[in-house]
């Protein structure tokens, strides 16, 4: 039986096709199998107007970027590793900033994902970063709470900062050195096999203990005193340190 030779089903026939446990005429079934027009019409017959609002809400919920994995908690946009991604705070030309939640530490974080490789205009980028994070202003003390920095796929990078920070001048300084600071944990494991183990560990310890250390000096220390000793520094750290 050629599907094209069969006349399209009426709405009543299509409705009958949807009745559970009802035997469908094989000719109708064959036609429906191939007829896009009938498929389109029966599609409409199956829809629920009442559920459209609910469906739209869930569709909106699922508009998270592809690099997010399935939500860890109901209502989240998605997740990246142990970080629950709650919603978008700001979207820019180069990045997206999310409000997130670090499930391992039980604290809120801002999650910034750079969707493009950095441009050379680092000052403009920095200003944008501060503006985005500043939207999470909280009148609480900053307690060295930034959490991580790593790559998320080839074209994305991720930054976590504590949205509890209120002293934005201080926060900005911390932001300046976040790449260096976050590299410390990466260096820790590498330092174990280094001849400069003690010296490196001394600097690592020193830098980690300082809450208000000078950003430029810290970067300089890491770049000059630590990096050359660590030949197996992850590529992303090298790249970040070059910026």
């Amino acid at each position: 039986m050629a599907a094209a030779a069969r006349k399209c089903l009426s709405d009543e026939q299509l409705q009958n096709c949807l009745i559970v446990d009802r035997e469908i005429d094989q000719v109708d079934a064959d036609h429906l199998q191939h007829c896009q027009s009938c498929q389109s019409r029966i599609e409409q017959l199956t829809e629920s107007e009442f559920l459209s609002e609910y469906r739209n809400a869930v569709s909106g919920q699922r508009k998270g970027p592809e690099f997010l994995s399935a939500p860890l908690r109901p209502g989240d946009l998605g997740a990246i590793d142990e970080f629950a991604i709650e919603h978008v705070i700001e979207t820019g030309g180069m990045s997206i900033v999310f409000r997130g939640f670090d499930t391992s530490l039980g604290r809120a974080v801002a999650v910034k994902i750079l969707t493009n490789q950095h441009s050379s205009d680092s000052s403009a980028r920095f200003a944008a970063e501060v503006r985005a994070v500043a939207k999470l202003d909280h009148p609480q003390d900053y307690r060295g709470a930034y959490r991580g920095f790593y790559t998320a796929g080839q074209d994305c990078r991720l930054v976590m900062m504590d949205p509890e920070a209120a002293d934005w001048a201080y926060n900005c300084r911390i932001w300046c050195v976040i790449r260096a600071y976050q590299a410390l944990d990466q260096f820790d494991s590498a330092a174990e096999k280094s001849k400069a183990d003690e010296q490196v560990r001394h600097w690592l310890s020193h830098l980690k203990s300082e809450k208000r250390f000078d950003a430029a000096l810290a970067e300089k220390q890491i770049t000059e005193r630590i990096l050359p000793e660590q030949m197996d520094v992850p590529p992303q750290i090298k790249m970040l340190m070059d910026q």
Binding site: L51, E53, Y54, R55, N56, A57, V58, G60, Q61, P74, G75
Partner: peptide
């Protein structure tokens, strides 16, 4: 509305 609909669905 969004939160409610998402959770209920």
């Amino acid at each position: 509305d969004s939160v409610f609909c998402q959770q209920v669905l």
